[in-house]
Amino acid sequence: MPSRETVEAFVAMVESNQHDQAIAQFYAEDATMQENLNAPPRQGRDTLVAHERAVLARAKTVETECVRPVLIDGDTVVIHWIFRFEFKDGSKRRIEELAHQTWKGDKVWRERFYYDPAQMKVEA
Rank of each mutant, 00 (worst) to 15 (best):
S3P: 02
E8Q: 14
Q101M: 15
R4G: 05
A28C: 04
Q25E: 13
A57L: 10
V70H: 06
A59K: 04
A118G: 05
W109V: 03
H51D: 14
A118R: 14
D106G: 11
E63G: 04
L56G: 08
H51P: 04
C66E: 04
A12S: 05
V55S: 06
G90K: 02
A59W: 08
Y27A: 06
L56F: 09
E96A: 09
R45N: 01
L48A: 08
E52S: 15
E123F: 08
A12K: 07
M33I: 14
M1W: 04
V62Y: 02
D89T: 09
T61A: 03
L71F: 15
K107I: 00
R68N: 08
N36I: 11
R42V: 14
H51Y: 15
T6I: 13
D73M: 10
E35F: 13
E97M: 13
P117I: 14
G90P: 04
L98N: 01
E29N: 00
V108P: 06
D73F: 08
V49R: 03
P40W: 07
I72C: 06
E111R: 10
P41W: 03
A12G: 09
A28V: 06
E111T: 11
V108K: 00
L56A: 15
N17H: 04
T6N: 09
Q101P: 05
E111V: 06
R42T: 11
E8I: 05
A22S: 15
R53I: 12
T6K: 15
T64A: 09
T47K: 00
C66R: 01
A50P: 05
K88A: 11
P40F: 07
F26C: 01
A24C: 11
T64M: 11
W103C: 11
S3Y: 05
M120F: 12
P41R: 00
A124R: 12
R110C: 02
Q119C: 01
A22E: 12
R110Y: 00
V67D: 12
V14A: 09
K88G: 13
T32M: 04
T47S: 13
Q25W: 01
V62Q: 12
P2F: 03
A31N: 06
V70C: 08
E96M: 03
E65R: 13
C66Q: 02
T61V: 03
W109T: 05
E52L: 12
Q43H: 09
T76G: 05
A22C: 06
L56E: 10
I79R: 02
F26D: 00
R94G: 02
W109I: 03
K60F: 10
V77H: 00
P2H: 05
D75F: 01
I23M: 06
V55C: 02
N17Y: 02
R53Q: 15
H100M: 14
T61N: 01
A118Q: 12
Q18F: 00
N17D: 11
R45S: 00
E96Q: 13
Q101L: 14
Q21Y: 12
P69A: 12
A124C: 01
T6E: 04
I79A: 05
A124F: 12
A50D: 04
E8F: 03
W81L: 07
V62P: 11
Q34G: 01
W109R: 12
N17W: 02
Q18L: 08
P117T: 15
E29M: 00
W81G: 11
E35S: 12
E123D: 07
T32Q: 01
I82T: 13
